[in-house]
Design a protein around this nucleic acid. Structure first.
Lengths: 105, 105
DNA sequence: TTCATATTTCAACCTCTATTGAAATGTTGA
DNA sequence: TCAACATTTCAATAGAGGTTGAAATATGAA
């Protein structure tokens, strides 16, 4: 993954509503969620939601697909994995102490 | 790790020079590097370097310690690990496919 | 003390980001 | 076709972030 893509993705994640959108979409899996559902769950107006969705999509973190009246969004697991891997393994040189922080109980 | 701290750290990492500073400081380990050395390595003027160093320090990603005339900066491994772990395990719900991208068990 | 070095702070400037409400676009069903 | 619904786009505004050069602060050495 290229550095400028990582930087754009990190910038996209560095915002409360967008982080919540990603978390919600991850939890929805391949089913995804419509813009309207996301707006309702996160208690936001439609234009705000649309703005943040397009920021995430431009960063490659989510994808969209129209389904009749709705537009369904899904998380891009490969991009998310690529970003995390870049920070952990490239930028942090896979430092053992940092990797240890990511252990699961 | 609290979400607003994660968001601040992600925002701090989402910038070319700051990402390079973190990478350099990780590579220097406990020895760290002075502001001047960092500026030289990254080919940047002092005020710009200082601005980005303080952004990283405010985000908790690095620490500073004066050593005679120089100020030595070091990466905070625990914060870096906490941020990566938050995105990976909390936000992404420790999704197996995403963990696999990072070659984590 | 005085000078040189290392670093930060400041002010000015410009660009980018976030939020809002209104208007426009696309889609379905009566 | 027309009305409703879902979503995006637009314009306006306010605020945050990045860069620069000059000035201020802190430290060590002659």
């Amino acid at each position: 993954m290229k550095e400028d893509m990582v930087i754009r993705a990190l910038g996209a994640l560095a915002q409360e509503m967008r982080l919540h959108i990603v978390r919600h979409l991850i939890s929805k899996g391949s089913e995804g969620a419509s813009a309207g559902e996301i707006a309702k769950v996160l208690n936001a107006i439609s234009s705000k939601t649309s703005f943040h969705l397009s920021t995430l999509e431009n960063a490659g973190l989510i994808s969209s697909q129209r389904q009749s009246r709705n537009i369904i969004y899904r998380a891009n697991l490969d991009t998310l994995g690529g970003v995390i891997s870049f920070v952990l393994n490239d930028c942090c040189a896979a430092h053992p102490d940092i990797r240890a922080c990511c252990e699961l109980p």
